[in-house]
Amino acid sequence: MTTTDSASETPPTATQTAIAFEQVRKEFGKGRDATLAVDDVDLAIGEREFVSLIGPSGCGKSTLLRLAADLIEPSGGSVLVKGKSPRQARLDRDYGFIFQAPTLFDWRTVWKNVALPLEIMRIPGMTKQKKQDEIERLLGMVGLDGFEKHRPYQLSGGMQQRVSLARALVFRPSILLMDEPFGALDEITRDRMNLELLRIWSETHTTILFVTHSIPEAVLLSGRVVVMTARPGRVQSVIPIDLPYPRTTEVEESTRYYELVTEVREALGEAMAGDA
């Protein structure tokens, strides 16, 4: 076992900035057809912080995530990931990206899907034995022991997303960028995945930037919730979630939790009213 258990008791402290958006603007298309997806976004996410982006659809929350991942480039302003350009961060394999669809390869077994990043990256000092141990450990962590030889299509949606999570963690990126990862799952599975994600987050010391449509999900998971307005996407407000970690389902029954859910809902209401 790894020696990370003690860390789960201490709340994460933002010592350094993991991701910084400064005056970020993103336009899609050119000329008259151009749409401003994101405008004037200033946001800093600290190391080991768990931050959720929430807002009406079309508010550019996914755009911010994709900018940080260097899947697209900003039209203005700057994005820094671990103090570097997103491109450099991508080349340095600093982040793992998780899509709403599990995006698994059907022609590979569960084991081989998780092994994919390691095959590509050829991390120095990563021996065959270390690889095997790491994959085994991660499959255990996401609760998929015994499914190594299965193919993705033999698994449920929730299990598929767990494979995707294990695959993102296998090369130990310090940042996870998650684009509505549990949006396609049913409520029950989603609740369980949320709690597992919190546990994994505290065990792996990663920074998580999490896009979601769900207010309860955002409040349950995050240290801060960023509420965005629609078209163009701007930061409406940043709401600190002062619920103590580690959080369990009991948190969802506390008064403070309800207050925070209400606060986020009201901020979201204002964000949408501004739009109308």
Partner: peptide
């Protein structure tokens, strides 16, 4: 090839040849 999977390969900073064999060929 699934656009998401292509972006996934990009996020791994996978080379062209690698992406070709691991993603496009299947």
């Amino acid at each position: 090839a699934d656009p998401n999977a292509q972006e996934l390969m990009r996020s791994y900073a996978a080379g062209r040849l690698r992406t070709f064999w691991s993603l496009h060929v299947p």
